Amino acid sequence: MKKKILFFCDPGIDDSLAIIYTLLHPNLELVGIVTSYGNVTKEQATANAYYLLKLANQEHIPIIPGAANPVQQDPVTYYPEIHGAGGIGPIQPQSDMKYQIYPFDTIRYLFNKYGKELIVVDTGRSTSLAIAFILYNQEITNVGAFYIMGGAFFVPGNVTPLAEANFYGDPTSSNYVLKYAHNLTIVPLNATQDAILTEQIIQHVIQQTTSPFRDLLKPIFLYYYKAYQKLIPGIHGAPIHDLLAIMLINNPSIVNYIFYDAKVINGTGEAKGLSYIDLRPTGQNGKTRIATKLNYSLFIEDFIDVMVNTER
Rank of each mutant, 00 (worst) to 15 (best):
residue 158 N to W: 11
residue 191 A to E: 01
residue 188 P to Y: 11
residue 147 Y to Q: 08
residue 124 G to W: 03
residue 116 K to V: 10
residue 173 S to K: 07
residue 192 T to M: 03
residue 153 F to L: 15
residue 193 Q to C: 07
residue 154 F to A: 13
residue 191 A to T: 08
residue 174 S to C: 15
residue 179 K to P: 05
residue 156 P to F: 04
residue 140 I to R: 04
residue 173 S to W: 01
residue 191 A to F: 09
residue 152 A to N: 14
residue 183 N to I: 03
residue 153 F to C: 11
residue 171 P to E: 06
residue 171 P to M: 04
residue 116 K to G: 00
residue 142 N to P: 03
residue 180 Y to R: 12
residue 119 I to Y: 02
residue 191 A to N: 00
residue 133 F to D: 12
residue 151 G to D: 07
residue 152 A to W: 02
residue 125 R to Q: 13
residue 141 T to R: 14
residue 95 S to R: 10
residue 157 G to C: 10
residue 94 Q to P: 13
residue 104 F to T: 07
residue 159 V to S: 01
residue 104 F to Q: 09
residue 126 S to I: 02
residue 101 I to S: 04
residue 123 T to Q: 01
residue 159 V to H: 05
residue 177 V to A: 11
residue 180 Y to L: 15
residue 144 G to H: 09
residue 93 P to Q: 00
residue 191 A to R: 08
residue 126 S to D: 14
residue 177 V to D: 05
residue 191 A to I: 08
residue 124 G to V: 00
residue 125 R to T: 12
residue 138 Q to H: 14
residue 164 E to R: 00
residue 155 V to Q: 01
residue 93 P to F: 13
residue 159 V to T: 14
residue 125 R to N: 15
residue 163 A to C: 10
residue 113 K to E: 15
residue 136 Y to T: 11
residue 172 T to K: 14
residue 150 G to L: 00
residue 110 L to T: 10
residue 121 V to S: 05
residue 134 I to Y: 13
residue 158 N to P: 06
residue 162 L to N: 05
residue 127 T to H: 03
residue 135 L to C: 12
residue 109 Y to D: 15
residue 122 D to H: 03
residue 140 I to S: 05
residue 189 L to F: 05
residue 145 A to V: 09
residue 108 R to P: 10
residue 137 N to R: 14
residue 162 L to S: 08
residue 158 N to Y: 10
residue 183 N to Q: 10
residue 105 D to N: 15
residue 163 A to S: 15
residue 155 V to T: 04
residue 114 Y to H: 13
residue 150 G to W: 07
residue 110 L to Y: 02
residue 106 T to S: 12
residue 94 Q to L: 11
residue 190 N to L: 07
residue 139 E to M: 05
residue 182 H to D: 07
residue 110 L to S: 05
residue 130 A to Y: 09
residue 181 A to D: 01
residue 192 T to I: 01
residue 181 A to S: 12
residue 124 G to E: 01
residue 133 F to E: 08
residue 178 L to V: 06
residue 160 T to L: 09
residue 101 I to Y: 04
residue 132 A to E: 12
residue 106 T to H: 04
residue 146 F to V: 01
residue 153 F to A: 05
residue 178 L to Y: 06
residue 189 L to T: 06
residue 106 T to L: 09
residue 174 S to R: 00
residue 123 T to D: 03
residue 108 R to V: 06
residue 176 Y to K: 11
residue 138 Q to P: 10
residue 139 E to A: 15
residue 174 S to Y: 01
residue 136 Y to C: 05
residue 184 L to I: 05
residue 145 A to M: 02
residue 98 K to P: 06
residue 125 R to P: 12
residue 161 P to T: 03
residue 129 L to T: 07
residue 179 K to H: 14
residue 191 A to K: 02
residue 177 V to I: 12
residue 138 Q to N: 13
residue 152 A to F: 03
residue 181 A to V: 03
residue 179 K to N: 07
residue 178 L to I: 06
residue 148 I to P: 04
residue 103 P to H: 09
residue 131 I to T: 13
residue 176 Y to D: 00
residue 187 V to A: 09
residue 147 Y to A: 07
residue 108 R to S: 15
residue 183 N to K: 11
residue 167 F to Y: 12
residue 139 E to C: 06
residue 153 F to D: 10
residue 175 N to M: 00
residue 153 F to I: 13
residue 135 L to Y: 14
residue 158 N to T: 08
